[in-house]
Structure formats: C-alpha cells, structure tokens
C-alpha cells in the first residue's frame, strides 16, 4: 500500500542542509497496524506527514496504492488523501465553531457527498461510537476522551483505507487511552490500515509492527 524509496527530508540552516529524515525505505502492506517510535526530534511526525501527503519529501519516491505521489500537484494530492486517508491528532483539532455532528460531517462536504447520504453516514458513525447524545454539543463541552472519539469518528467518516494518528492518546489519561487503543485494534481487525506515532511502549504493542526512528533514520538494531 505504501512504498517509500530513499525518502529524505531536510531544511537549510545557515546554508547547510539539516536532515530531518534520511534515506528512509519503508513498505507497509494493507491491513498492517504500524507504530512509529523514537525520541523527540527523531523525525516521527515528519515521516507521518509525508505519508499523509501533508508534506513533501526533499528527495526520494513515494508510491501510494501504486501511484507516485511525488510530483503530484497540491490539488491532486488533496484529492488522493481525502479519499483514502483519515487523520487523528494528539490535540484533537476539532473546529470550535462546529458541533460534533458538523465536525464529523465536514470531510463529506469536501468530498461532495449529497446531503441525505451524509446524514445517513454521520448517523451511522455516531451510533457506532455511541455519541448520538452528544451530536449537538460543541467541542469545548466535551472531555478530552470524548473529543478524541469525535476526532476519530471524523477521520473514519470517509471510509479511509489508511488511518494516520499522531500520538492519539498523548493528551488523555490512561483509561481513556486504553479505550482509544482498543478501538484502533478493532478498526484494524475490520481492515483499516493504521499508522500511529507514539511514545508509549504499551500503545505500540497494540500494533503488528514497530518502526524505531533515530536521528531521521530507521533504527534496524532494535
């Protein structure tokens, strides 16, 4: 599903390239549940952003479902990721002005899905996540765990093949964190490919594979 070939990312600092990612080769099959681990500044989030097509690599090739992502224009990339990828953030990143229902609905609007269909899809997922009663509340009226649940629901509403999660439990207490990880496991069992960035060994263990990053490289000795 995901094929990264010699991906590097750098920024110029004082005229010299400062490598964030160096020479990453990575192949992730459909149905995998991958955890990316590593110390702060090792490039975990940058790697996730490149996989999520939110960022460009400086060098190397990226094939997503067999299609070359490198060299696509922003609009085409946006087309691609809004169809296949869902994002979950550590800080939830819900839109404060929108209700739970509307937050979940937003990706569908950008996918041009008709009103009646959207209604059915949102109702489905509210039901599944057992947050029907919260649908008219605004994000600030929810607990952190509930907000992240909405965040995940929003990520899943477009029926993505790939779910990218950047420290999804980082702002949650351990009980809420466990609930989210159980949910991820369940989603993975249903066939959603998941890539998560995490600091927690325990959370990483939910996945089927762990990738360790150190100074922008995949650390193979671990």
């Amino acid at each position: 599903m995901i094929d990264l070939k010699r991906i590097s990312k750098w920024v110029n600092v004082g005229g010299k390239p400062n490598f964030i990612l160096k020479d990453i080769n990575l192949d992730i099959k459909e149905g995998e549940f991958v955890s990316i681990m590593g110390p702060s500044g090792s490039g975990k989030s940058s790697l996730l952003n490149i996989i999520g097509m939110l960022d460009d690599s400086s060098e190397g090739e990226y094939f997503f479902l067999g299609q070359g992502v490198h060299g696509l224009k922003e609009k085409q990339r946006s087309q691609l990721y809004k169809q296949y990828i869902g994002f979950v953030f550590q800080a939830y990143h819900l839109i404060d002005e929108l209700t739970v229902y509307e937050n979940i609905e937003t990706p569908l609007i950008y996918q041009n899905i008709k009103g009646s269909e959207r209604q059915a899809m949102v109702a489905d997922i509210l039901d599944r996540f057992q947050i029907v009663g919260k649908k008219d509340l605004f994000p600030t009226q929810l607990s952190g765990g509930q907000q992240q649940l909405v965040g995940i629901a929003r990520a899943l509403i477009g029926k993505p093949k790939l779910l990218l999660a950047d420290e999804p439990t980082g702002n949650l207490n351990s009980r809420q964190g466990e609930e989210i990880m159980d949910l991820f496991k369940q989603l993975n069992n249903e066939g959603v490919t998941i890539i998560q960035v995490t600091h927690s060994e325990k959370n990483a263990a939910y996945g089927s594979r762990i990738i360790n990053l150190l100074d922008g490289r995949i650390d193979n000795f671990n």
Binding site: S78, F87, I95
Partner: peptide, 13 residues
C-alpha cells in the same frame, strides 16, 4: 488553525 485543519480534512484552496 481552522484553515490547516480544513485542508487536512480535504478542503482545497
């Protein structure tokens, strides 16, 4: 922040 988020959710310019 809202702009970034909407872009991630699939909005184009």
């Amino acid at each position: 922040k809202e702009v970034g988020l909407r872009k991630v959710l699939g909005a184009i310019r």
